[in-house]
Design a protein around this nucleic acid. Structure first.
Lengths: 190, 190
DNA sequence: CGCGCGATTGAGTAATTTCAAATCTAGTGG
DNA sequence: CCACTAGATTTGAAATTACTCAATCGCGCG
């Protein structure tokens, strides 16, 4: 596990053995099957998840059980219902596995504690800013682009995901009906 | 100026006089008139801006000069074209004043330097996470809501902005034509 | 009073959605 | 190896919704 952290979180590179042991007790390794929910609606969200292996979607369901996907997260991403996690409120988002998935989870208190102990604020700040920039790109795409353009931008941004995610699920992410997405293939060559 | 920083950035509370003086030289106070561009397209974005007074919009223009608004920023917000700022690329977003506006600007190097010297990573991390959560809410709103709901959510989120921003500009932010926004009033009572 | 900007209204159009049904595909068991 | 099934994708047709374009209205300000 520490290898993983060292590889992905540079700041963990130079740790004493003792520190290493402490860290391993803080991260909880968990395995989920395809389809499993890591976070369900109305859960108390205790943890933030580092996706080690697999693929998950973060989505919201409206009162008619219609789904909206906020993001996909896969290897080496951090994901959770951040609003619920930080504000200690009930989850309004669900985190569900699109593939068998392994995560390292970190409780809120542990997050705060390693944040200060290992000076990770800069690491998380960088992640957060990149996330912010990505969110802005997505907002712009939602505002600006036609369904066809949205799909092309998705392929460009996540070339490896196209094969791992059913088209109907991609359609939900794009905010387009699966029929419309399907018809794009015919009209022009995608 | 330091009063402003102390009030808005808690971490600046206990500074020596010497530190205070250093800080004042780092922040550059600038005034803009309504309509002025703080950032224009293709600018090199050297600075991040702390909005002290006023109101700005961050927007993108497509090849047909059609505008899309990513966010509004007003008192006590930090704003810039973050992608251009961090990656040292040319601006694809424009930052324009909707009112006479006063800002304190901070260069990239100064940002890095005060970040480490005053341990502001936690401060900016918190800001960034809040921004991330806000972006997710906006994405969900764009995906999920009808124009009417989008407008209602906007009013709820920014009750004070409704009077400060022309409806046609709000319409752009919502991703709806101004005619559609206008027709909402007739149909049902808002 | 008249100018100019923002807001509204109307009519026609374009695009996507919805609903229903047909087709395709991968995996399973006989 | 084939038939079957469940899930995913595609197709068609009708309905909805917001858009565009054009014209009008309303109001504050010089």
């Amino acid at each position: 596990m520490n290898t993983i952290l060292k590889n992905n979180i540079g700041i963990f590179e130079n740790l004493t053995d003792e520190e290493n042991i402490k860290l391993s007790t803080v991260f909880k390794h968990q395995k989920y099957k395809k389809g499993d929910f890591i976070i369900s609606e109305n859960d108390m969200v205790q943890d933030v998840y580092f996706i080690h292996l697999g693929l998950v979607k973060l989505s919201h369901f409206d009162s008619n059980a219609k789904e909206f996907i906020l993001s996909f997260a896969f290897e080496n991403w951090w994901e959770t219902d951040f609003s619920a996690f930080y504000n200690k409120t009930k989850a309004t988002l669900m985190l569900q596995c699109l593939e068998d998935t392994e995560v390292y989870s970190l409780s809120y208190d542990s997050y705060l504690s390693i944040l200060s102990k290992y000076h990770l604020a800069n690491y998380f700040l960088e992640k957060s800013i990149k996330g912010h920039i990505a969110s802005q790109k997505r907002i712009l795409s939602l505002l600006k682009s036609t369904p066809k353009e949205k799909y092309e931008q998705f392929l460009k941004l996540y070339p490896t995901l196209a094969n791992r995610i059913p088209k109907s699920v991609i359609a939900i992410y794009l905010g387009v009906s699966r029929e419309t997405l399907s018809r794009l293939y015919k009209r022009k060559n995608l």
